[in-house]
């Protein structure tokens, strides 16, 4: 606190000085934008790490899946683990398959439809999980500059009121106020630019992963349909 007051007495144009001299609304805007920036970078880190993890998991799963291992065995291996992505889709499909066979399925078409539904649900859940919080990136990216601009407008308004109050048009009177006001826009842009870039990158990544999962789901559906044809007694 001592430090803060010492800086506040200093009417300098440093980064902290600009922030500290700003009005309440501008300060609020700056703090909000700083929080948005932290949130943005948190999402970016989380998503890029998560997508990398998901991609590696998909690679590993596909490798195991196409290694010629029996589906039952794979299901048993994965069943007791918490799975995401392709594994989750596989498990959902296998669970439905098992349930249907335990109760003695009559119609192969109905069975096929139920398995597809289960896989669709799992796929939707997984792609939702992948795309979660990307919308907040989009929001920050589009609204950040506006919020910063709002702070700037308020700040410039305040400094022009200062001119009216001090009856002096000297640049020295206006300059600090305008500088602090522009700082708000700067923070807004700092928050928004990475958000926009990351949103575009991450949403396309999520789209790719989802497409990969869909492709797997279709392939798996085809495999299961073949199995149903083989296993069910011909009526």
């Amino acid at each position: 606190m001592e430090d803060l007051t010492a800086v506040a007495v200093h009417t300098d144009v440093s980064l902290w000085g600009l922030f500290w001299q700003a009005g309440f609304i501008v300060k609020l805007v700056m703090v909000g934008l700083l929080g948005a920036s932290i949130w943005t970078w948190g999402i970016i880190l989380d998503k890029s790490l998560g997508f990398g993890r998901a991609k590696r998991a998909f690679d590993r799963f596909e490798q195991v899946f196409w290694s010629g291992q029996s589906l039952e065995e794979l299901y048993r291996n994965l069943g007791d683990k918490r799975t995401t992505g392709m594994g989750a889709i596989f498990i959902a499909a296998m669970r439905e398959w098992k349930k249907s066979f335990e109760k003695g399925a009559r119609s192969p078409i109905a069975l096929q439809m139920r398995i597809d539904k289960a896989m669709d649900v799992a796929l939707a859940r997984e792609s939702d999980y992948l795309a979660a919080r990307l919308t907040s990136l989009a929001t920050i990216g589009s609204a950040g500059p506006f919020i910063g601009l709002f702070g700037t407008v308020i700040g410039i308004m305040t400094s022009f009121m200062g001119i009216a109050g001090s009856k002096s048009t000297s640049l020295a009177v206006v300059a600090p106020g305008i500088a602090e006001a522009l700082l708000a826009t700067a923070i807004g842009l700092v928050a928004a630019i990475p958000a926009v870039i990351a949103y575009n990158k991450l949403s396309s990544d999520a789209g790719k992963l989802t497409a990969r999962m869909e492709g797997f789901a279709d392939e798996f559906s085809a495999i299961l349909s073949r199995q149903i044809d083989e296993k069910l007694p011909r009526t």
Partner: peptide, 20 residues
């Protein structure tokens, strides 16, 4: 998610400190 938020906050604090 919490981990990445905290790491992001730490990075911001570091950048701001450097900026100051």
């Amino acid at each position: 998610m919490r981990g990445s938020i905290t790491s992001s906050a730490i990075i911001h604090a570091a950048l701001l400190g450097w900026g100051l």
